[in-house]
């Protein structure tokens, strides 16, 4: 066994090194998938009366999907009759509120906030928190919250702690609006992919 390296080994290593060096120069630390809410049909403004797109649930290879609906609280209207929480088309109950909830997984929590008026539910602000353990990103609430019905505070986001970062993201293959694309992690996490 000779201790030295053959000439061909040196050539191969140099070639590999140069290519790797070239790639490292343009490498990003981490790249993740993220949904642009301005493109996603469930939150895209102006698309009114269209069917809810639930491909994020159906296509994702992760069980229960890596996509979640997220309520940006600072944009939430805090309505008493939230069209994302209630099925506003269902029959009205005795309390004056719709009798059915919209979420098929009952993942939205509702509670009155501020100086609560116990006698008149309409006289309060409400907080709507999405239970990430239950939500699978089906987009129903996102569509219901969209302008003009709501304020569009709920959007779909990829949860980077659940996403397995497939090269061939199955959602991106199926997404009719090409709304899910890869971003350098920092941008996607800080939400820079969405200017609004």
């Amino acid at each position: 066994m000779s201790k030295g390296f053959s000439r061909r080994q040196v050539v191969a290593v140099t070639g590999l090194g140069l290519t790797a060096g070239f790639l490292v120069k343009k490498a990003e630390g981490q790249v993740v998938w993220q949904i642009d809410s301005k493109s996603c049909v469930n939150s895209k403004l102006g698309e009114v009366g269209v069917k809810v797109c639930d491909l994020c649930v159906k296509e994702c290879v992760v069980t229960q999907s890596a996509v979640r609906a997220v309520n940006e609280f600072s944009k939430c209207g805090r309505c008493c009759v939230c069209p994302a929480y209630f099925n506003v088309k269902s029959a009205v109950g005795k309390d004056g509120l719709p009798s059915e909830k919209l979420c098929p997984r009952d993942a939205i929590l509702r509670k009155p906030i501020g100086e609560v008026d116990p006698n008149d539910p309409a006289n309060n602000f409400y907080e709507y928190v999405i239970d990430e353990a239950k939500c699978d990103g089906c987009g129903k609430c996102v569509m219901a919250c969209k302008e003009p019905a709501g304020l569009g505070s709920i959007v779909l986001r990829v949860r980077h702690d659940l996403c397995v970062n497939c090269n061939n993201c199955a959602i991106s293959q199926a997404c009719p609006k090409d709304a899910i694309t890869q971003w350098p992690a920092l941008k996607a996490v800080l939400g820079l992919s969405e200017t609004a």
Partner: peptide, 15 residues
């Protein structure tokens, strides 16, 4: 006025 689902007698939606 009050919220009344789809019934046009009342006001629908969130607001």
């Amino acid at each position: 006025g009050r919220f009344d689902g789809l019934n046009p007698e009342g006001f629908p939606g969130c607001c």
